[in-house]
Simulated assay, not measured.
Amino acid sequence: MKNAKKILCLLLAISMVFSFVACSKDKENVPSSSDNTNVKDKTNEDSKEDVKTVYPFKFTDDSGKELILEKVPEKIASGAPSITETVYAIGAQDKLVGVTEYCNYPEEAKQKEIIGGYTGPNVEKIIELGVDLYITDTIADDVKKTLNDAGVMVAVITAKNYNDIFAKIALIGEVLDKKQDSENLLESMKNRQEAALNAISGLKGKKVFHEVWHDPLMTSGPGTFIDEMIKMCGGENIAGDAESPYPEFSVEKLIERNPEVYLTADDGFKTVDDIKARTGYDQIDAIKNDRIYFLDADVISRPGPRIVEALELIAEAMHPEVFEGK
């Protein structure tokens, strides 16, 4: 059982790295629907419920491909947990017929057909389910071609940074004719973000370290969602000057930079005592002052609707006194 957990943790760490690579791969191909004249304008607050996507709907995905939806998709499949969470959050789950084996939130998503996993999508299953739109964050060209040849449209939608997550939720809302629902969701997310950041505004920032993996020690470096959120909360990511997004980080450097807050995943494999017992860790302020925080690995790594919850968790870890009793 312990080895199985270790493998799952390692897969999570690897998936974070590949997720970042996927996010960065097509950085110049920014999807846009701003020039799309097929979406009705919101004329006033009273007509909010009438905001609909008008088809044919044209947009450019993150692979740089221009796509045209002739009508609202009837059957969709998701190739990433963040996309599955978005589909549920905007109320489009009735269209969702397939998800990956890692799509575990919300709980109802586990009841959907499995159409892929770490090795990629199950093309035969997707075709068998009659999927007309497959939304994913990354896909091999040959797999995309096979699906396209079978009549399945593939949309690559990948958030490249924290703010881009909001844009991608809006895009998915337009694609699935859930524009108003996505706008309502985004408004709620922005309100929560504003409340969290206002609560810690003006407070002294903290030096923070985020452990992605422990052997070898790996962390979240520049350009990652974690790095962005630490900075948004007024903190300093002590690995913010690393040369890669998820670098190995020596214990010697960790001790030298001496973080005040130590973040890691609540993966069920390690405990606070395990971390405290590591060689040299007794010299680190975060360890000496019991500032070790275990965060939900899915929440802090998925570029979807729960990213604001991740921001709240980081803000609370940096300034727990502000959030006591809340």
Rank of each mutant, 00 (worst) to 15 (best):
I200K: 10
V97S: 09
E187K: 13
P121I: 11
Y105M: 11
D137C: 15
K168A: 04
N104S: 14
E108C: 11
G116N: 11
I200Y: 11
K160N: 15
S201K: 13
I200T: 00
K178F: 06
A159Q: 03
K206W: 04
D142P: 06
A150W: 01
A196Q: 02
R192I: 01
G116D: 07
D177N: 15
E194P: 10
G173E: 06
N184E: 14
A196D: 08
G117M: 12
D181V: 09
K112P: 12
K110L: 07
I165F: 02
T158R: 15
V154G: 06
D164Y: 05
T158N: 15
L186N: 04
C103H: 02
E211C: 08
V152I: 02
I135Q: 08
E108A: 15
D181A: 14
L197M: 09
A155C: 12
I169K: 07
N122P: 07
H210R: 13
S220M: 10
A199K: 12
D149R: 06
L176Y: 02
T119P: 04
T146R: 12
A195N: 14
D142L: 00
E174P: 00
V175L: 13
Y102S: 01
I200Q: 01
E211M: 14
P106R: 05
H210E: 12
K207V: 10
E128W: 00
I139H: 05
Y105D: 12
N122C: 03
T119A: 14
S201R: 07
R192T: 09
N163T: 00
D181E: 15
I157S: 04
G221M: 13
T100M: 02
K144N: 08
V99K: 10
G205P: 06
Y118V: 13
G117T: 03
E183P: 07
D164W: 07
G116P: 07
K144A: 15
L186I: 14
N161E: 14
K207Y: 09
L171Q: 12
N198W: 00
M218R: 10
D164H: 05
I172G: 11
G98F: 03
L147P: 03
I157G: 07
W213G: 08
K178Q: 13
K145P: 00
Q111P: 09
D132I: 00
H214S: 14
K168E: 01
K112A: 07
N163L: 09
N184W: 01
L176T: 08
T219E: 08
K145T: 13
A167L: 13
N184C: 04
A155Q: 08
D164G: 03
L185P: 09
D137Q: 15
M153V: 14
L217C: 09
E113C: 12
K145A: 10
E113Y: 10
E113L: 00
V156N: 13
L203D: 08
G116L: 07
I127W: 06
V143H: 06
E194I: 04
H214F: 03
G116A: 07
P216I: 01
G205C: 05
G221N: 08
A140W: 12
Y105K: 15
I169W: 00
H210P: 04
E113S: 14
D132W: 07
K112L: 14
T100R: 10
I114K: 13
N148K: 05
D149F: 02
Y105R: 06
V212K: 12
D164T: 09
I165M: 10
T119W: 02
Q180D: 05
A196I: 00
N184G: 04
V123S: 05
E128D: 14
F166E: 13
E107I: 11
F166A: 00
N148P: 06
V154D: 05
C103Q: 09
I114Y: 01
